[in-house]
Design a protein around this nucleic acid. Sequence first.
RNA 1: GCCGCGUUGGUCAAGAGGUUAAGACGCCUCCCUUUCACGGAGGAAUCACGGGUUCGAGUCCCGUACGUGGUACCA
Length: 516
Amino acid sequence: MKDLNNVRVRFAPSPTGGLHLGGVRTVLYNYLFAKKYNGKFILRIEDTDQSRFVEGAEEYINQCLSWCGLQPDESPLAGGEYGPYRQSERKGIYLNYAQQLIDKGVAYYAFDTTEDLEKMREDLKAEGSHSLQYDHRVRLKMKNSLTLSKDETSNLLKSSTPHVVRIKIDPGQKIKFTDLIRGEIEFDTDNVDDKVLLKSDGMPTYHLAVVVDDFLMKISHAFRGEEWLPSAPVHIHIWQHLFGLDKMPQWAHLPLILKPDGNGKLSKRDGDRLGFPVYAMNWTDPLSGELTKGFKESGFVPQAFLNLLALLGWNDGTENEIFSLNEMVEKFSLDRVHTSGAKFNFEKAKWFNHEWIKKLPANEFSEDVYKILEESGISKIDHNFLETIISLVKERCTTLLDFVEQASYFFQSPETFDIDAVKGKWNLTKYEFFKLLSKQFENISEFKSEIIEEKTKQLCSENSIKIGEVQMLLRIMLVGKKTGPGVFIIAETLGKSETLKRIEKAANYFNGLQYT
RNA sequence: GCCGCGUUGGUCAAGAGGUUAAGACGCCUCCCUUUCACGGAGGAAUCACGGGUUCGAGUCCCGUACGUGGUACCA
């Protein structure tokens, strides 16, 4: 392992839309690694493809990281001594390094048009070739500085003929490296193609930019998804010729997060199709206006979101599955990150959220619940009262959205009653009983659950009525349905006058039904 | 097609040659509770296949199958 005293890692997203949960996991692993070794976590925006620019996407990424509590130490927003942190603002830098590679004979100009490339692939296909790549097999048949004379090349360049710069990878060599997660990995350069380094618009491709910026930003460890593994030999080759392999960060290719059912990488489409979020936060596409759901808006707490992501590909080797961010920083280690992809399981994700809602004190998320209740039409909520309610019902809530169902009866008298639960239990005797019970309640000076319960039980035994039936009826009166914490606690929380009001209202309603 | 990576219950997974192959989610049964949850006790369910190596293989090697990623002037 490299020097762990100067750990610098980066998350390098392309701002083209919503932030996928796999992206957040990459952020998380970066963050955990950086914090574990007192290093720096950097956010670098890889916006080299101008055709894919999406309004608001970068700002959205910032918001997601902020919600998750994974703040970068250096970023376009926070600044830092290795800026700018937006690749579009570093355009000039790459040109220079591309030139160096050309001068060393490791890269070359290519003037092929899109049509030329299409024709090349068609020809290769017709020949029955295994490979349709622009590589050592075909480059000498193409229009580039290897096939043209020096003069021809410089004339084309002088006349501003559209061109790209390609890396030149010769066959017959092995490119090896040690992946921190997978161990030794070897590629044969026979199968590696001459990737474009500099596009015709002067912007670098990922392949050049990632190497140059990782070097200039002194990145020590580079984490990225497994989908990058096949292009690793290109990057290593560039490293070798530009900066030297000893300066290269150590690579760690993270396993993919897969669809729960069929095959393939988890995509936002799968979320839409199967009814769960894939993005961290809601994302609205500025062009189509299409909204894609996020974990935040689906009622997840960030602690749970991070926790479930961390466990999708890592565990600490014990039976513990619940980790706070600090605990993860402490326990995280790359050699316990898995090599194989994991199918995403939303049921388990919800379990993590439920665990965290139970674990967290009410004030940690009461503001979010406040807003959710407000949106459901319950307004002017007292904050202290809300926290009491949250503590009372949170073990029944899998997501923050469930608080609407589980808590609203504390704020508004039930409009409907579970008739089936009352059926067969309500009659004239019960009606009389509840009249008596209300009188008893009236006389309680301190309206506490123990006292309410005691009085109720006492009255039950005096009238030879089963306490259970009364509890059920009282619950329906106060709540409207068969749910919630202990009924006497509900009464206490509601307060005496509200309790009495609800009893009276419900009793009258029950009387109106034919089975009185 | 070619190249890379992977493969322990339905899912997440522990396991680093000798285990009755942990645990979690989900599912089922029961207890608690005249509610819903929480909690508790049980249950069903797994080493892709074939060859080696070895006294012994889920663990090491090879092959096959399957999965997955890449194969763009996208990242």
